[in-house]
Design a protein around this nucleic acid. Structure first.
Lengths: 127, 127
DNA sequence: TTAACTGCAAACCCTTTGCACGGTG
DNA sequence: CACCGTGCAAAGGGTTTGCAGTTAA
């Protein structure tokens, strides 16, 4: 991120309003509010730069396209609603994953995704 | 899987020798031992059929292409070695994920991947 | 001014699909 | 001998890259 451009600032600002993890397409749609003819290639290039400088981290949910979120969050996991597809952050990770690690293996990190129905989809009625 | 063909049998047999989760390309390479000019499309079609009839399940590790393994295993998770890239099954899942689920949400399932170094990569020396 | 940035379009990788030929039951 | 299954190649979806025009510094 050397130069400051309208495009990059718009993309960066997308994350300033407490967004859940976003796909490149979602970032594009949101940033087009400020820069209407923004191109997807520019989004990907900006994402790459923001990943490299540590501003963003990628969120890879099994079987889905990569999402991105601000890196300055606590260690956390995700809950994906099977109905609406939204992804929520789960902040309490109080699990002893070391107990699951085979003897002789060294555990360094873990990824966890919970699946089910979110409160709004349950509240909205059957489904 | 209606008809039994050389291709389908070769693909099915790939999994009979205790394979770790395999990518479509790996399945192709292995099955070509029996059917040299096997096409990748046939592999994908066979995988789809084997997923549909419950023989295989897909294994989606964050940021990687889909892998496939036999479905007749217990509920389990994966340990991916950051050095050699191999994926191991983790069979003891005794975690109370419900405790991590937000109020009002309904937990249906979960995916867990542990990352680190496997025993052979630790034993092999520095790294 | 001028080198980095942008948007478009083409290229890529993985997966799926259309089609005519081949093989199973 | 009907069809399903196969291989090839083209099409799709997401991401990356080449290029000429644009713009920040």
């Amino acid at each position: 991120m050397e130069r400051s451009t309208r495009q990059r600032e718009a993309i960066r600002r997308v994350f300033d309003i407490g967004q859940p993890p976003l796909t490149a397409q979602e970032i594009l749609s949101l940033a087009r509010g400020e820069v209407p003819n923004l191109g997807i290639a520019t989004v990907y290039r900006a994402i790459k730069a923001l990943l490299a400088d540590g501003t963003l981290v990628d969120v890879e949910l099994p079987g889905e396209v990569t999402r991105y979120e601000l890196a300055n969050k606590e260690h956390h996991h995700y809950f994906r609603c099977r109905k609406c597809g939204r992804v929520y952050d789960i902040n309490n990770c109080r699990v002893d994953f070391d107990a699951m690690t085979p003897h002789g293996f060294r555990l360094e990190s873990h990824d966890l995704v919970l699946y089910g129905r979110c409160a709004s989809c349950i509240g909205a009625g059957r489904g």
